[in-house]
Design a protein around this nucleic acid. Structure first.
Lengths: 309, 309
DNA sequence: CGAGTGCCATTCCTGCAGGTTATCAAAATC
DNA sequence: GATTTTGATAACCTGCAGGAATGGCACTCG
């Protein structure tokens, strides 16, 4: 026969009071009930846990040992209940977030900060990957939500827009820009590598085409920061997310293109609640989306500061 | 409402099988009973722990979290029960042993070795103190058993003889010893300090008196090993427990006195089971005594009853 | 498209674990 | 020896956990 928690609770209270009558009162039961509980407990462990003397109850060495264990056990049981309760309401557990090149700088840090403030018991893990990779990671259950480039058409995924970004030209200080983006038609371009985010490269090409030219790409690199530094070094120009201004690379100007094609939306994507074979909707995801998505039309979750200069 | 172990057990089995019918079978209950248990559990934590899909049951994130906790909880509950059961039968817990100058070398290490072999879960703490100090430590509950010089007359203590020791003369190699202990009547004596064990010093004096002289003590030290080395260095001679031969100090001869007065008995002492106000008899003490006391022709001073069930 | 199947939920019933009341028993005090 | 204190026991009662039967949903298959 196995120990059960109610018995242990009774035993602990009795170990405090060392008096059957009082302990029974504290437990809101009558004294015989407590006597029977303790007797059952003692029969389970095969011997006495308490010594009943005249007007004096005391713990045996074995009782002392059980008392320590029981205390820990009950405390852990309470904690298990509490954390599970939190998890059920999306306030505890592990949330795996995917994010891409742009969302990191744009508004994600702020969203994360607010989320961790509001749900401190939630463990967050971040995975840096492109939009297509995020989509397959979502499908396979490797991440729970992702910051993806919209639009996403996928039968098992839902999305909501949370950020708006646009490409801006990154040029060395002093380079002429009178005629807008078209001024760069003959400049060499440095861009993020196609293997990092082909959709981003496509977007750069599309934007240039709207300005009437096709970019001559002379260098591909893996990091946005590298792009800006190559621009600074005069290797070429580039089109980068507007939020790149947060990186503060000196002698590099970020200037708006004024083109509608330069804009794009970043949204949150997650598995639909009843997608075939999938788990039910994770309340953690729900809480994260609610916090990230503030419906003011398509107002960005984070205000981008005006460009310097 | 608090979580209880039976629910958690059911939940764990269900989490393994992910099938109500099978899990119920493994638990030896019917499926509706399991359904109700899980429902109760879910109502306690305030939300679903499992998703019931078509021919597919899966854990929610919260369920996953509870599963981890529940596993640890049940394992610890089992351990608590097991160790308490051991403690009840005197096979776990803490045994505090007092011992004196002689018992350490004489037979205690062997007894201890056998005890730890037989009761590996018992934690042993040793306290080095003289017989009178052990007696008062026993009275106050600071130690559980003690190796004391017999006889002990005390209303609350019981004893049993376990070892027999005798004093032997420790003399430098080459010193004449034709006439036995009386040969040393004019030699300077080195002895253990009175503050360490006055009864031991008394015994040395008593033994010398039996040989017809009173020892001239020129040096008192705190350690038996020091005594032997002073003998080796020619500072004086001494009477030491026979077991001092285990220390192997070169150029020191240990020779028997042949005197009946040189002998003494070492016994185990412990609190009587029903001494006023004390706890009941500690089964650990019982086991220790039984192991230490091996009647070899000596009638037992006390009969050891089997432990009450 | 309707019958078939697998599987969890619901309902109703029963036995017993665990509680209550009343009483007993042992030990110490007056 | 009567009284008091306090845990154990006995007898009874009841809510709830578990069993048996059935329902109902979702998907499959001929």
């Amino acid at each position: 026969m196995a120990l059960e928690l109610p018995e242990l609770r009774s035993f602990l209270v009795l170990a405090q009071h060392l008096h059957f009558g009082e302990a029974a009162g504290a437990l809101h039961v009558t004294q015989p009930a407590l006597t029977k509980q303790i007797q059952k407990l003692e029969s389970k462990v095969g011997g006495p846990l308490l010594v009943r003397g005249y007007r004096r109850v005391s713990l045996t060495p074995a009782g002392e040992i059980l008392r320590e264990r029981a205390q820990g056990l009950l405390r852990e049981a309470e904690m298990a209940e509490e954390i599970t309760r939190l998890a059920v309401h999306g306030k505890a557990g592990l949330l795996r977030i995917g994010f891409g090149i742009a969302s990191l700088a744009a508004g994600l840090p702020d969203i994360l900060t607010r989320f961790r403030q509001r749900f401190p018991a939630v463990q967050v893990s971040m995975a840096d990957m492109s939009t297509p990779n995020q989509i397959s990671a979502l499908e396979q259950g490797d991440i729970d939500v992702g910051f993806v480039r919209l639009p996403v058409e996928h039968p098992d995924l839902e999305t909501v827009p949370v950020l708006e970004e646009r490409l801006v030209a990154a040029i060395p200080r002093g380079m002429p820009y009178r005629k807008g983006l078209a001024s760069l038609r003959n400049e060499p371009f440095v861009v993020i590598s196609r293997s990092v985010s082909s959709s981003f490269v496509d977007h750069v090409a599309r934007t240039c085409r709207a300005a009437g030219f096709s970019p001559r790409i002379v260098q591909e690199v893996n990091e946005l920061f590298t792009v800006l530094n190559l621009v600074r070094g005069g290797v070429g120009v580039s089109l980068v997310p507007r939020s790149a201004n947060l990186m503060h690379v000196p002698n590099v100007r970020l200037v708006d293109t004024g083109l509608e094609e330069a804009k794009w939306k970043i949204g949150l994507a997650w598995r639909k609640a009843n997608s075939r074979g999938a788990d039910s909707f994770d309340p953690l995801v729900h809480n994260f989306i609610r916090l990230a998505y503030r419906p003011r039309g398509v107002a960005p979750a984070v205000d981008l500061k005006p460009l310097p200069r």
